[in-house]
Nucleic acid binder design. Structure first.
Lengths: 106, 106
DNA sequence: TTGACAGGTGACCAAATGGTCACATAACTT
DNA sequence: AAGTTATGTGACCATTTGGTCACCTGTCAA
């Protein structure tokens, strides 16, 4: 399996995306801390974290018997750069910002 | 199935990513034109294109009996914005640019 | 109008995936 | 030392997914 295949497969599951959301709001959480946020056995969560780690979307640091998890934004940015060039980036960010403004107004 | 689920599931397959790559280099291709690029029956390609279309990653325009396909960058940018804030974006783009420079030099 | 061309539908099967469990190891606490 | 806490492994099963095929509809050209 290629690197990018691992990344996209990892992102394909909603539970794993939720784990990334959790780490986006606050980094450096332990596995058991993350387990408590999902309605799933710890085995399931551990498996998902392993997939995210092998994809490089999450990096870990061991501290004693604990495992701290951190979000790695690099693969996400590479997805972006694969299909959005500099010119298109300006257009699409402007479009998204405009859409957000229109939705905020009454 | 939620919208974002459709997008990530669509991106999880290498054949579908290859189709996006093809449309990134040149937009507006017909289905049969895309079929000729994949080692797969036309049914397989049609199925993949349908998945991409339902995810909003590809938009189509009918022209007679032909179906023209265009890449839509918006969902890709939204993936980016979900896990990369403005501050992190500067850091990670700088990091990727640096990495690219180092790899180019002898 | 007859045939060739572009695309669509539903059934089908092999392979991959998500989730759980029994069992195991290593580190902190008292 | 003994119990508790944090995490790891491999087997297992139900569901989903990728790909193919027989068959069908609509469009263009001679």
């Amino acid at each position: 399996m290629t690197d990018d295949d691992r990344v996209f497969k990892a992102l394909a599951d909603p539970s794993r995306r939720f784990l990334l959301d959790l780490l986006f709001t606050r980094d450096g959480r332990t596995q058991s801390e993350l387990e408590s946020e999902l309605e799933m056995t710890r085995f399931g969560v551990a498996k998902h974290l392993k997939v995210l780690e092998e994809a490089g979307l999450v990096v870990v640091r061991r501290s004693g018997r604990e495992k701290l998890h951190f979000l790695n934004p690099v693969p996400i940015r590479q997805i972006h750069d694969r299909w959005i060039d500099k010119f298109t980036e300006h257009q699409v960010t402007a479009l998204i910002d405009l859409k957000r403004q229109l939705e905020e107004e009454p």
